[in-house]
């Protein structure tokens, strides 16, 4: 099997130093989606680089913190951490309920809340790129 390039930066500063310029970048945290995309051939392994951000220590990477008017849920927080958190159970029961039905316990222990938005934004960009000309025509027609 061909694997993408893999880098494991230890700090946010290191990410930008180590990032290859000629490859497509995928950030790897829980990896629950990325591995399936890789196996299914949806990722061009030779021209991609997985940046493992799971070991970053110099950011508030993981946690649920109560602030004055908000509760901050960091991007690396797993869905199992969300479903077990007392603060969220009290103030955000819908988020807890959603996290509980997201997937199996094994998935919930790995999948991070930052993952779906990151994957979704990539997907949206791909759709927009693919349908760019069609969207442009539609817009021209409308105006």
């Amino acid at each position: 099997m061909t694997y993408p390039q893999y880098i494991q930066p230890r700090s946010v500063g290191d990410i930008w130093k180590e990032l290859p310029q000629d490859k497509k970048i995928y950030f790897l945290a829980g990896g629950t989606d990325l591995f399936n995309y890789l196996r299914d051939g949806l990722i061009d392994a030779e021209n991609s680089c997985f940046v493992d951000v799971s070991l970053l220590k110099d950011v508030e990477a993981d946690g649920i913190v109560e602030e004055t008017e908000n509760i901050k849920v960091s991007a690396f927080t797993t869905f199992s951490a969300i479903s077990e958190n007392g603060l969220l159970k009290k103030f955000c029961p819908d988020l807890v309920a959603a996290a509980k039905v997201l997937g199996t316990p094994q998935i919930a222990n790995r999948a991070t809340i930052g993952g779906p938005p990151a994957m979704l934004s990539r997907l949206l960009r791909r759709i927009l790129q693919k349908w760019k000309s069609l969207i442009q025509k539609a817009v021209e027609w409308l105006i």
Partner: peptide, 23 residues
Amino acid sequence: EQGECGSCTVIVDGKIVNSCIFA
């Protein structure tokens, strides 16, 4: 081998994970 069936379950730091989708 796609994180669905749980046959490959192992315990990592006290939590169960699917080892088939774990780098």
